[in-house]
């Protein structure tokens, strides 16, 4: 079992983090859009935001861990890409980190603006660092905008991966799924 990322492919931690966070982030987007339209008498009116906040705090931890893991590991060989493709891939890949970080921080600032902590699954609570009533307004607007931007970047990233997989036949999906690119 490959742990570290090498020039040949991605190790297990990277792959688990990639697909786990992909599912969680897409789920959070759908959950977020759904929960803000719930009616007051819905059984999920309180539960859905509780889950959204909890997963968000877990994702923030995973994001920081993933960033550290990324910078201490090699990047798989991407010499099959053109210079322009390689630059675009780097912008998209590295773009996810600040975008997701800003997305999660804006959500945290919105929910903690009144000084309340965020309860994570009745497991632990994340205290408010900055109590600044009124901050929830710009933080909330930023949270919605950053969520849409994240999904936009996800779409660009997924389309690019599918292009490399099925048009260029460079096996990038296999590299992220099973660890190595099967047709190389």
């Amino acid at each position: 079992m490959m742990i570290r990322d090498t020039s040949a492919g991605y190790g297990v931690p990277t792959r688990v983090l990639h697909w786990g966070m992909a599912v969680a982030i897409l789920g959070m987007y759908v959950l977020g859009l759904w929960m803000v339209d719930l009616n007051y008498y819905s059984p999920y009116y309180q539960l859905a935001p509780d889950i959204h906040r909890s997963i968000g705090m877990v994702l923030l931890t995973l994001l920081l861990g993933r960033f550290l893991w990324r910078i201490v590991n090699d990047k798989p060989d991407d010499s099959e890409l053109s210079t322009m493709e390689r630059t675009a891939a780097r912008v998209v890949h590295w773009g996810f980190y600040p975008l997701l970080l800003a997305l999660m921080i804006s959500g945290y600032l919105m929910s903690t603006a009144d000084g309340r902590a965020i309860e994570v699954f009745d497991w632990f609570s994340v205290p408010a660092i900055i109590e600044n009533k009124g901050m929830e307004k710009p933080a909330g607007a930023a949270h919605a905008l950053l969520a849409h931007l994240t999904i936009l970047l996800v779409i660009v990233h997924a389309l690019a991966a599918l292009k490399h997989q099925f048009y260029d036949r460079s096996g990038v999906l296999g590299r992220m799924w099973s660890g190595s690119s099967s047709n190389r």
Binding site: V36, G134, E136
Partner: peptide, 17 residues
């Protein structure tokens, strides 16, 4: 009206929406 304050940030955002 956006200065509404019920001492709960998330609720106040909902009230502004």
């Amino acid at each position: 009206p956006s200065s509404i304050n019920t001492n709960h940030a998330e609720r106040d955002n909902h009230l502004r929406g």
